[in-house]
Design a protein around this nucleic acid. Structure first.
Length: 906
DNA sequence: GAGCCGGCCTAG
DNA sequence: TAAGCTAGGCCGGCTC
């Protein structure tokens, strides 16, 4: 039988630990497969006589089952030969961490390795199995290993299995839920006093014909059969858990369930049980009851056999939004309205027995529906499933953890195959030492942009720059020269240090990267002839996962909490990268310098014996670049079409790539018909990407206020319009008058008449740490304090806090206010702030390129501002940008700004 | 007014 | 079982 691995753990048994694999079979049945016979172990690196140490170990620790001497390489550094180490097998998985510290005190023992690998991961790694991977097993018997009830359709034992390749995902069952609690007098509900009054559930696929069910702790008249009513909270909760287990979902989800619903229900169950109202909160496929653990600010929930996925953190990490309330997320991402009963009205709605109560129930239903929709419509989990399959980590780990566990997993697999041991996670002391002694890691090179508006800029970038650098130069923990020297020329990165070449010893990391890269190329090829939509989706997620993994290794190597940390390695990678982009620029500006277009092909000067009259000569100049990209301006006496620029781009890419070691590759990406560079990491381009036979056009904005969440919508909208007018139409005049009209509008804002405008004036910032650790006042901190004063509780750390600046005297930070409060109380906003601080500076940075200067504008004292002046278009020197006028630099600093009578100083 | 710092967010 | 990395712009507030 074939099934997909959703979860794994182990149970103790008198014959030794037994692994349990949970999954979903291709026929839709849920599976629990017991696998006996796998033993826990770790390694010891010691000096002196290993035989003696081995005997001492078996005598001293009765939990040690077996000690073998095995040849192994140490974790870091090129080594000429393996060294004998001890492989210690213990009785139980937990024995490994138990005896680790004592083992370290024994004479001769230098280090212990792989002492903190979870047993289930150890199993998956050693057996070549992967999270969400498909396995084929031959059941040998029904479950002899558990007397407990297993909540799966199919329960059996197997001792042999193999992973198989399958391009489909098993028919997974999704369950999402949302609870409603009755707040007392409108304040935040707490489990000690506020009961759970309703739980809404959504199912995909449907449960007994229902897409949703709402259970209610009260008798209600006039409901449909997808509402179940109970006399008490206890009875309702029991029914909830009954449905939960009967449905037997693979993915348990909801919105902020980890932050709220799950801990709330779990606490409530404890409280009710304490007063004699027993609730059987069985949720696990092994019968485990609902529980959670607090780690720092985070709640961790684990349900054996299933995967718990909170939509909130996933949305947070995948979408850049101003706010992450379910209301806002549903609106922005699903174009759906969340229905709400205000907390202050809940009691009234709940105590009603007619319309209001039914409405309340429908509102509750909507919340679990929305959470489900987020998963299904946004395919929230696809990427994680693919990452699990590619890295081998279990889905729950991929969802909960960062990049570290994925990289660890891949490294452990490959290190094991090549007889290398891996150290445990560094202790806090070691981390502190690494942080202290850190020589520092230098990053990528950012080229100074040629500021202003440019035409015909070809954009090229390096495909997976850091991974390809590691492959090209064999950079690895295992190739850095530390103790042993190779009998060959070494590779010397610009940052210093030495690495052995691949001919001497191929690095483990380059090997891993190579196979990831190759798989990605293959996956992309398969995408082109995918058999179905769903297959295409799986493949697309896979290639994305491979890309993410490829790019995770460099960051890991410079991460002080990584098992394998090497400044020498991380610095080698970035130093090659910095040299590379500088060399690329020099090559394009110097050696290449020109491309000649003739009869639909591109040539370098030396490829042609002579220049013909109808050739198009394109001069090249690198005008910007960041880490792995170069922007090349193409100028010519003749008109350069998109296709021409494309030819130039492809030609440059090929030439540069040829000059580089495999698999480094510069790729032609797109063409900016017009590009506006404001500063490093701040630019806007009217870009054309090759698409099929033609071109796909778009305006892309990087780093500027339109894409920043700490600027208000008014600014973003205005700036977007300005950028569109300037880039697409070349209409600076139009841009100026647009800004003028916006400023006029803002001047005349009356909050009482138009409370909608508050939306556009709202800025948001993340409340990133506890209030006490802020050294300076911050606007969002002011608002957080005001909210705490008004409601009794501050917003949680990590939340984005919206605010507007209201009129008044004193510091800006003190005039930040909750937009909701402003709306309710008709508080006037600080019009001057919005014009002078929000609108004009970003606009000026853009229009300043055309000589528009608003620095000496004083709206308070002057009747006629700069914009008023431009109200007379016939006087304005600016017309549409013609080709000649395009490349305009800002006026010299030394120019007297006050004497500038014209808006537009060309 | 220049220059520094804390804070935030973004590019890659 | 908390956490990939650095470069860089810009704001407000403070000091000199």
């Amino acid at each position: 039988m074939n099934f997909q691995i959703l979860d794994a753990d182990y149970i103790g048994h008198e014959s030794g630990p037994v692994i349990r694999l949970f999954g979903r079979a291709e026929d839709g049945k849920s599976v629990c497969c017991f696998v006996p016979g796998f033993e826990p172990y770790f390694f010891i690196n010691a000096e002196g006589e290993l035989d003696k140490l081995s005997t001492m170990l078996t005598e001293q620790f009765d939990v040690i089952k077996k000690v073998e001497i095995v040849p192994k390489f140490e974790p870091i550094g090129f080594q000429l030969s393996r060294k004998p180490m001890l492989r210690v097998t213990t009785m139980e998985p937990r024995n490994v961490p138990e005896i680790r510290d004592d083992v370290l005190t024994l004479p001769g023992v230098k280090e212990v390795y792989e002492t903190d690998i979870l047993f289930r991961n150890r199993f998956l790694i050693d057996k070549g199995l992967h999270g969400m991977g498909w396995v084929s097993v031959e059941p040998v018997s029904d479950s002899p290993y558990s007397s407990e009830k297993i909540y799966c359709d199919s329960v059996f034992t197997a001792d042999s299995f193999e992973e198989i390749e399958k391009l489909s995902i098993a028919p997974l069952k999704y369950f999402s839920f949302d609870i409603e609690c009755l707040p007392l007098e409108g304040s935040m509900p707490v489990p000690e006093s506020s009961p759970v009054i309703m739980i809404s559930m959504s199912f995909s696929p449907a449960f007994k014909g229902h897409d949703t069910i709402v259970v209610v702790a009260k008798k209600v008249e006039g409901t449909g059969d997808d509402v179940e009513c109970f006399d008490s909270e206890t009875l309702m909760l029991n029914r909830f858990f009954e449905i939960f287990q009967e449905y037997d979902a693979d993915v348990i989800s909801g919105y902020n369930i980890n932050g709220f619903d799950i801990p709330y229900i779990a606490d409530r169950v404890t409280i009710l049980s304490g007063s004699g109202d027993n609730v059987r909160s069985t949720v696990g496929r092994d019968g485990r009851i609902l529980s959670y653990r607090k780690i720092g600010n985070r709640t961790m929930v684990s349900i054996p056999g299933r995967v718990v996925v909170d939509a909130l953190p996933l949305i947070r990490s995948q979408y850049s939004l101003k706010r992450y309330t379910l209301r806002n997320v549903a609106k922005e991402l699903l174009d759906r309205e969340k229905l709400d009963v205000a907390p202050s009205e809940m009691e009234e709605y709940w105590n009603d027995s007619g319309e209001k109560l039914l409405k309340f129930i429908d509102y509750a239903r909507r919340d679990s529906e929305l959470a489900m929709e987020l998963f299904l419509k946004l395919q929230l989990l696809d990427k994680h499933i693919a990452i699990a399959q590619v890295s081998g980590s279990l889905l729950q780990e991929v969802v909960d953890g960062g990049q570290t566990s994925m990289v660890d997993n891949l490294l452990l697999r490959e290190y094991g195959k090549q007889d290398r041991v891996i150290p445990p996670k560094p202790s806090d002391e070691l981390v502190a030492m690494r942080n202290r002694s850190s020589e520092g890691l230098k990053g990528g090179e950012v080229l100074d942009p040629k500021r202003g508006l440019l035409e015909n800029v070809v954009i090229l970038d390096y495909k997976s720059l850091y991974p390809t650098i590691m492959m090209a130069h064999n950079l690895c923990y295992t190739t850095v020269v530390e103790q042993d020297r190779p009998d060959a020329e070494t590779i010397k990165p610009p940052s210093g240090g030495e690495f052995v070449p691949a001919e001497v010893s191929k690095g483990i990391m380059p090997s891993i990267l190579e196979s990831l890269l190759q798989r990605r190329v293959e996956t992309k090829k398969k995408m082109k002839n995918a058999a179905s939509d769903s297959e295409y989706r799986v493949l697309d997620a896979t290639q994305l996962a491979l890309k993410i993994l490829l790019n995770s290794f460099y960051g890991y190597s410079g991460y002080t909490r990584a098992r394998l940390y090497s400044m020498a390695l991380a610095n080698a990678v970035t130093s090659f990268g910095r040299n590379n982009i500088l060399n690329t620029r020099a090559l394009i500006n110097g050696t290449i310098s020109k491309v000649i277009l003739r009869d639909g092909s591109a040539y370098f000067t030396e490829e042609l014996s002579s220049i013909n009259a109808d050739d198009t000569i394109v001069s090249l100049s690198v005008v910007y670049g960041d880490t792995d990209s170069v922007f090349v301006q193409c100028s010519s006496k003749k008109e350069v079409s998109l296709d021409d620029a494309g030819l130039v781009g492809t030609k440059i890419a090929a030439m540069v790539s040829d000059s580089l070691p495999d698999p480094m590759e510069l790729e032609f990406e797109s063409i900016a018909k017009r590009a506006l560079f404001i500063a490093k990491k701040r630019y806007a381009i009217w870009v054309f990407e090759p698409s099929g036979d033609g071109w796909k056009e778009d305006i892309k904005v990087k780093g500027m206020e339109t894409v920043r969440r700490d600027w208000c919508e008014l600014t973003s909208k205005t700036l977007n319009t300005v950028l569109g007018l300037v880039l697409k139409d070349g209409d600076v005049d139009g841009a100026v008058s647009h800004v003028r009209s916006v400023v006029d509008g803002v001047r005349n804002i009356d909050v009482r008449k138009d409370s909608e405008i508050i939306e556009d004036l709202t800025m948001t910032r993340m409340f990133s740490k506890k209030a006490a650790s802020y050294k300076n006042k911050q606007p969002h901190l002011t608002v957080a304090e005001k909210i705490e004063r008004r409601t009794g509780s501050p917003p949680p750390v990590g939340e984005r806090i919206p605010f507007v600046i209201v009129a008044g005297k004193g510091l800006f930070v003190n005039r930040a206010e909750d937009p909701e409060y402003v709306r309710e109380n008709n508080i006037p906003i600080d019009v001057d702030y919005y014009i002078k601080k929000q609108l004009l500076p970003p606009v000026e940075r853009i229009l300043g390129v055309f000589g528009v200067d608003m620095a000496n504008l004083d709206y308070d004292s002057r009747q006629m501002g700069l914009f008023d002046f431009s109200d007379k278009p016939q006087d304005s020197p600016v017309k549409r940008i013609s080709k000649k006028e395009v490349e305009v630099q800002p006026p010299q600093q030394s120019e007297d700004k006050k004497s500038q009578s014209s808006l537009f100083d060309f």
